[in-house]
Design a protein around this nucleic acid. Sequence first.
DNA 1: GGTTGGAAACTTTTT
DNA 2: GTTTCCAACC
Length: 746
Amino acid sequence: MDSNTLQKVTLNPRQQEAVLHTEGPLLILAGAGSGKTRVLTHRAAYLISQGVKPWNILAITFTNKAAAEMRERIDQIVGMGSDSIWVSTFHSLCVRILRRFIDRIGFDPSFSIYDADDQKSVMKDVCKKLEIDTKLTKERTLLAAVSRAKDELVSPEEMALNAGNDFYARRTAEAYQEYQAQLRRNNALDFDDLIMKTVELFQDCPEVLDHYQERFRYIMVDEYQDTNTAQFRLVSLLASKYRNLCVVGDDDQSIYRFRGANIRNILDFEKVFPDAKVIKLEQNYRSTANILNAANDVIRNNAGRKDKRLWTENGDGAPVHLRQFQNGFEEAEYIIGNIRSHIEKGEAEYKDHAILYRTNAQSRLFEEKLIYANIPYKLIGGVNFYARKEIKDLLAYLKTVDNGRDELAVRRIINVPKRGIGATTLARVSDYAAAYGISFYDALLRADEIPGIGRGSAKVLPFTVLIQTLRAKQGNISVSELLEAVIEETGYVKELELEATEEARARIENIDELISKIRDYDENAENPSLSGFLEEVALVADIDNLEEESNRVVLMTLHSAKGLEFPYVYMAGMEEGLFPSYMSIMADNPKEEIEEERRLCYVGITRAKKELTLTAARQRMIRGEIQYNQTSRFIREIPQECLDEKSESPAKRAREERETRKEKRREAFLEARRDFRAKPFETAPVTVTKADHLEYGVGDRVRHLRFGEGTVLEITEGRKDYEVRVNFDTAGVKKLFASFAKLKKI
DNA sequence: GGTTGGAAACTTTTT
DNA sequence: GTTTCCAACC
């Protein structure tokens, strides 16, 4: 590709400039919807056309999903050699580097990666050991302090020095130190360590740094506004030799300050790299003018931002809709009704709609209403699939097989299933391990030598025999066979089958999904290995599972929505105290915190392509208490002329009716949700699974979640699904799709 | 050593 | 309203 062909691929002048500027530092300030991924991918293609070797290019993103997307788009325009370009998230890049070189800084390359749950267990242990009263100082607070320190590349020793005579600061530093010691004993790193240790490695081993500097001569960083100090240092170290660093970001979309993102990284880029070229992309290709004006006028209220204003050649479009309701139920009902009317009129598909909210807790109401309305949806966020108990249990077996020093994993499963090994026995084992300087698991292997264990050792034996057998098999069998062996030997699924509750069934389904995920891994990974699989698992985020092909309404937090776009966007819960959150209003530095909330609002608004609807409720149940909230200040910041405001009439349904039905519905909801939720690892992009047969036929009596009982009038077989016509006793005749309706024969 | 019930805490966002 | 934790019981 030369600069002439570049003209043909419809890049605007600013975008072209960014693509053509290949040498030296470059800051691209890319407003929402301004085509930055386009620029990045074309830039990669242009670099290669100029003779740059594909393997000398590194592109860093924050999520696997973004990385996969960029990879795909680069493949499309680059063709040959594109797969040698490294497109990676910060975390997987670091893991890859550390697996190869971490022994240089005294770690074992087979380290485990600890998630938030694991971190909490470790910190709990630390508090016990240091006699920190967790009623006064929460593990969470300590972990947050540790995380912040790591984001800022502050070591435990430095933290101790900085603490001076402040008692709490000193205790925190002690906890940090002990926490690191425990991780090291378990041969584990937490998320923040992945970045910090890589920086440490680069600083301590110039030859390793040089190796990667030579490797990555051209570096691009996406979502630069979300980098923290450690990530910034990492990138600067890598780029310091050839100085070909291109960062793309939008200071107005910086929404991860709470996670350590340092907005100064983008605001001060030109100070750190005085020779940096700065290019602003302000033309928006995504939204209508009304939506854009709303966004511009909201964000304008923030101080200390880079000056820019998005514009578009698109038409005004519909006004931004604003609706206020009596409560959250009506809000949800309205939104779902609105979505349904788009579908019925044939204006849009399910997947064209996204419902965005501030907190995960708000999703439940929408889920309920969507189920009743027979609308397929995909929920992003909440409890991560890999954080579920059953999944963590099984993974802990695999981790124990993989890394015997991961004491946390061993302790997690030593009594799963129940083996009758008590706290006393475990304490003795622990003491023994400490006394002989061996790992917890190795101490278990010598259980019969441990004094004071008595019968305990007989109980430990079957466990160690199981693990040893699995270890012997490892290498000869695939990862999925290993997991199946674990399930078989432990009787994990059998036990759940015996329980026969709704919850147990859901757990079994999750396990089935884990099995298919591992099979998928075995078949598709380049070099499938147990450690490789565990690593992949540790680094996925829920958003990575959002498949564009699947036709479902999407539910997620405003944070998760960054980088996505939808024709119809609903921002729910636009209330003071909820959004902006109570926490931000009451913070020590409310100005800054509210500015962050405002950026979040800006992100939400700019997700919409065609129509944006803002909703609020006058009263809302929060933690079982009713709260009365005013509409969000952000609504008031939107100019009247882009708004179309209507107040909706009170609820049609009586409240008492809700109360009496509540219990029944809860059960039904839990059951339906289990079937309804999109499977995290659906391999085929089908949206419905047509059943082999239906358990009911014409003339049968059936029950529907919302419509109650009725008689089946007709069943027609479509290509993808059965269409069932039912005459409901109270609701009349309805046409339903079998896979969504979940009709039960009675 | 395991089970159970009730109190307490929790909710801002997550790679 | 839901989840987590802990003490008292079996």
